[in-house]
C-alpha cells in the first residue's frame, strides 16, 4: 500500500465467502468497526467483480462512518480477488 502499509486477507470460501479477516498494519477508525466491513463481505459470491466487492466495502465504510488511513476499499477488493484466484476452491 502507499505509505508502506501491509494488508492481508484470510478467507475461507466455497462459491461464496464464508469467513473473512482483514489484517495488517493500517489504521481504521473506529477500530472495532472493522467487523462491519468483514460482515458486509460475508456471502459475497467469489465470482463477483472486483468493482462490486469494492462497492460493498465502500457501503460498509459509509454506513458505519469508518475512516480508512493507509488502506482503501479498492485495495481490500483487489487482495480478496487475488486470494480467490491464487487458491481456487479454497
Amino acid at each position: 500500500m502507499p505509505g508502506g502499509k501491509l494488508l492481508s486477507i484470510k478467507l475461507s470460501y466455497g462459491s461464496k465467502i464464508e469467513k473473512i479477516q482483514i489484517l495488517g498494519d493500517f489504521f481504521l477508525y473506529p477500530e472495532n468497526k472493522i467487523t462491519e466491513i468483514e460482515k458486509a463481505l460475508l456471502d459475497t459470491p467469489i465470482t463477483e467483480s472486483e468493482d462490486d466487492v469494492a462497492a460493498r466495502v465502500k457501503k460498509a465504510v459509509n454506513d458505519n462512518n469508518i475512516e480508512l488511513v493507509g488502506i482503501t476499499p479498492e485495495a481490500i477488493a483487489s487482495v480478496i480477488k487475488m486470494a480467490v484466484v491464487q487458491r481456487p476452491g479454497g
Binding site: S8, K10, Q21, I22, L23, G24, D25, F26, L28, E31, I34
Partner: peptide, 9 residues
C-alpha cells in the same frame, strides 16, 4: 501488535 494484526502471524 496493532489492533488489526494477527498475534500468531
Amino acid at each position: 501488535i496493532g489492533y488489526f494484526q494477527s498475534l500468531q502471524d
